[in-house]
Design a protein around this nucleic acid. Structure first.
Lengths: 226, 226
DNA sequence: ATGTACGAAATCGTATACGAAGCTTAGGAG
DNA sequence: CTCCTAAGCTTCGTATACGATTTCGTACAT
């Protein structure tokens, strides 16, 4: 009969602060470049600055915020170069995670992923980039979430979190990519269903993401020369 | 004419603390399982506990220390399972880093790597696991350090750091692996010299590390059944 | 009008202090 | 002799306070 206070969800205040700030970044309340003033956040949460500082340090180590000495923290930006690096890293990590996860997927998982992908397909007309991106994440989550190596899984999550600060994500910039993406998802599912070897699955998953990146790069270089 | 004080190398005390603790972990002064008592370290450095806490948070996010609420931090352990996960992750990340780095390697780099590898070969008799491991890291560093993607490079470094806390590393447990390792290094160098495609290099680099992991697993399961 | 210098405000960095939680050990009951 | 209980110690968690650094605005000189 402990745990009497329902308004104390997380343990320490520094953890609460960490969770809150992270949520606000991922969710978009704090957009990239936003300055995270310690005293301000401390006031919001009704705590002192010390736990906030610790939370910020953790977020810094995860790459969600950048920190400059004697100046302060800002939400990490979407610098195109940074986007490229993150996507490339994620292509490698997520490809591996998907391959490691695939032998552990049951029929129910496949069915669920396929269901999500069909939702995405239905979403193609009246295209809503935000919704599409959310479904996209859900689809891939089903595929890699069974990855037995927690380190790799953690890295995948971190990668997705960093991309999440872009909100509507790539598909706003490259809507044409969405159709291909849905088709590649189905191909990937067939590959997993047929119990293809890990190498093939890894390569397919990686290429799927690289293709999105390439589409973005082509788009942006075209924009440059216009 | 600022920077007058020579004894103040790093900027903030929390950064100094971070660097020091990390160094001590990697270098082995703090062995795995060692309790990191805040007040103790603060006393050592002549600072208060606040900067220490921040440093520990960062190390926690990097996986070098584990932290338990209201209990404290300890140097992250070498739990065999953890070792497995770390090696597997590193095989993927380092393989990718090496492949991305290989086109950027000059003749001088190759020569340097080959020199290190020859030192390793010479080191095979009068086998010294610690020295061998250090050379091994140097060899691989030459190969992946040119990786143009800083995120991937950072992940490789983190992986190596975690393994570093094992000090003498795998080769103490599996000395027989050392000979094969040197040969595989030479094969990898030949592959890079011949400008093989990135896929082949990545696969070779990944397998090289997986093989070490497999040797360790075989050894440890043999030890279990004895 | 522009550039520079000075000063005030904002913000960060760290020390100190005190309360809370966990661990250890001594004492007593069964 | 063993197990349970309680007090004390250790260590962590956070608030508050103050010094240090940066930034921004204003006034002055050129």
């Amino acid at each position: 009969m402990a745990e009497a206070v329902p308004a104390a969800p997380a343990g320490s205040k520094s953890e609460q602060a960490y969770a809150l700030i992270k949520a606000r970044i991922v969710e978009g309340t704090y957009s990239p470049g936003h300055r995270l003033v310690l005293a301000r956040i401390a006031g919001d949460l009704g705590v002192s600055v010390v736990p906030i500082r610790e939370a910020i340090r953790r977020l810094e180590a995860e790459g969600l915020v950048t920190f400059e000495r004697n100046v302060g923290a800002t939400v990490a930006g979407i610098d195109p170069t940074e986007y490229l690096y993150t996507m490339q890293t994620l292509s490698i990590i997520e490809g591996a995670a998907t391959a490691l996860s695939s032998p552990l997927l049951g029929a129910a998982d496949i069915a669920r992923a396929r269901g999500v992908n069909e939702e995405m397909r239905a979403c193609l007309k009246d295209f809503d980039p935000v919704r599409f991106t959310r479904l996209n994440q859900e689809f891939h989550s089903v595929l890699f979430e069974h990855c037995p190596n927690p380190h790799i899984l953690d890295l995948v999550h971190r990668g997705w979190n960093r991309l999440a600060s872009l909100r509507s994500s790539t598909f706003r910039f490259v809507p044409g990519r969405a159709t291909e993406s849905v088709d590649e998802h189905e191909a990937l599912l067939k590959l997993i269903e047929s119990q293809a070897d890990a190498d093939a699955i890894e390569k397919a998953a990686r290429l799927h993401r690289s293709a999105t990146l390439d589409a973005y790069l082509a788009q942006s270089s075209a924009a440059d020369s216009s």
